[in-house]
Design a protein around this nucleic acid. Structure first.
Lengths: 364, 364
DNA sequence: TTGTAAGCGTTATCAT
DNA sequence: ATGATAACGCTTACAA
């Protein structure tokens, strides 16, 4: 009855929509009146705490269902001073790497009763600052991000630190040691790639990197360490770097290598897209993969689709999201109040058609 | 001073973390006390409404900054009975199609002061039902979804209808005529593909479709209509359908076509992935693209990456999100209270290397 | 132009 | 086991 009445009101409101409409939702009070008891008793069955007799509980349940009652979490949050909302900040949700992390975060978050609010921070500092304010105003319970180190991020971290809102970096900035960080083990990944090529018999291995990229730096480090650990001497000339992770950069760098008197017999590109550029360069020179040159990509994104399909280093994408959200929830629920952690997750070599033993004519 | 004190408290709390910590945020009251005036005056400058003298405004601003005040939108929402939160529901955020829509929704939403909460509804009805409850409890202002028609979605639509929370389907279910729908014009897109092939000189054109798919049905319709409008007779044998949009399905269907006495000279696959399967089948038969057979994909997802690169029908992905969020905001802010709309957005043919005139020996 | 005070729908602390 | 009642932090008549 009540319901019908309110519905009629709403319909009526369409006629005088110049007036602000007031959505009157069913409240605890309404349910209490209907069930013939106090709001606190109803509150107890809704919240599932305190003593309620089975009989009253049933009565309340019935009234709730009949009236279509949905507890107002806003009022609850105001009273309890905490929300069930966490945020995930990315540079670009369009990037499959981030959208996969988002998926695994969302999954665990929602199964623990948390809502995930998604923020595309883009690259402008201003946007991130606005987001920071918005998140603060919304009193979010915690935050995961995959953002690069910037002043705006520093600002965010600082404020959240003060407000005691936990932050986890999921393959984002590694700079702020006050926050938990979970990231792929790039040193190990590049090491594995190098080792795999060494075991195939290659000894003159080049890498296609990117200047000013922490990731590229770590991967280069893994390459160097493995080479040296296995007793090979390091040749700095085999480390070539471009300005970005794009296809054209891969193409150009590969061209440079091929024009040398002694080109490498194997190449590790620090990203699948660069590897695609490298494939183009190699084919243009009339060489074939893997017969003349072995090629390994990184990130295992489009490696399945190239021709030939690319041996690549797969990132533990799903793992990153899962571990990050787990840490965050532990922080929020104060099951963990220890020092900030740094967690490295293993990368995995996926062997496909772009790698083989070096050509026999290789006399190196 | 106050700030320092609270920080010390927090640090101290780490020692007795068995006690529940109480985050005490700065409130309007605190600011008012500091600035030496009433809460309502402060409220007026925070909210930017009513009369405030420039002098007091400045005083308040100063106090706010000094104390690090962030308005509590939860309290505000409780009072005003509305939130600045909208939700976007997808079957899978990992799918680039949806993540691109999500990106454009997020963009406009945030620039209008709304938060986007992202929900991966997956395929289980139970998950969607849980999400429905959660969204209701959170009193979201509106909802966009890209979900297929299911009972659980019907349930959601029905409840939201009752509660007067606007819904927009962004390339999701088209069934519920009570909600606004914005979607790609599949009839036109398939029509354009067909027309393009006809103009190249093809007359024996096949399509690779999928059973029980509305999308496939509409695309088939576009194909048929264009053929008939141009005076070609329809050959039902040239419409082959599989059980899903997968690569293997494309491969199998293409094989079937190639084994016929009179194979088609051109094929439209209703999805790029199926087209990849078709390429494999065609190459296996020793035929080449586009010399022997022209091939068109759909959705323009991986079309750039295939070999040969694929002529494909690009979906107006960004547009879908933008239009959907615009409609939703208009509904929320009651700038639009008209009948539910259905908006079709144009698809665009992107010509690449997989299409050419039919071979000369084609005597059809 | 500013202040007072009554809610918004919960939870939490008392009584009973 | 249940009920009254006071917050939570804000907005908003209404009064001054």
């Amino acid at each position: 009855m009540n319901k019908d009445k309110s519905r009629n009101n709403a319909t009526y409101n369409n006629y005088n929509s110049h007036l602000k409409r007031r959505k009157s939702n069913v409240t605890i009070k309404d349910v209490a009146r209907r069930a013939g008891m106090s709001t606190s008793t109803v509150g107890r069955v809704v919240g599932g705490y305190g003593y309620v007799s089975d009989k009253t509980r049933e009565k309340v349940r019935k009234a709730m269902k009949e009236m279509g009652y949905y507890p107002n979490v806003i009022a609850r949050s105001l009273k309890t001073r905490r929300t069930q909302t966490i945020a995930y900040l990315v540079p670009s949700i369009t990037n499959p790497f981030f959208s996969q992390i988002a998926a695994s975060i969302e999954d665990l978050a929602s199964s623990h009763g948390y809502n995930l609010i998604l923020c595309n921070a883009g690259i402008k500092a201003d946007k991130l600052r606005k987001i920071t304010t918005m998140l603060l105003e919304n009193r979010i319970a915690g935050l995961i991000h995959s953002l690069p180190s910037t002043d705006a991020l520093y600002n965010l971290v600082e404020i959240f630190q003060k407000t005691h809102i936990p932050i986890v970096s999921a393959s984002g900035s590694r700079k702020f040691t006050e926050v938990d960080r979970v990231m792929p083990d790039d040193v190990q990944g590049a090491g594995d790639a190098t080792q795999f090529l060494l075991e195939l018999g290659h000894s003159y291995i080049a890498v296609l990197g990117v200047k000013n990229s922490t990731t590229s730096k770590l991967r280069t480090q893994g390459y160097k360490e493995t080479l040296q650990r296995r007793g090979y001497k390091l040749n700095e000339e085999l480390i070539v770097e471009g300005s970005d992770f794009g296809e054209d950069t891969g193409y150009t760098l590969m061209k440079v290598l091929l024009e040398r008197k002694k080109p490498p017999t194997a190449v590790v590109a620090f990203n699948d897209v660069m590897a695609v550029g490298a494939i183009r360069a190699i084919e243009e020179e009339g060489l074939s993969i893997p017969e003349d040159i072995s090629l390994i990509g990184f990130d295992d994104t489009i490696a399945r689709l190239t021709k030939p399909s690319l041996t690549s280093i797969a990132l533990p994408i799903g793992e990153i999201g899962k571990v990050a959200i787990r840490i965050l929830l532990d922080r929020i629920e104060e099951k963990d109040s220890g020092e900030p952690k740094k967690i490295l997750l293993g990368e995995k070599l996926v062997v496909r058609d772009s790698t083989a033993r070096p050509p026999a004519r290789s006399d190196l």
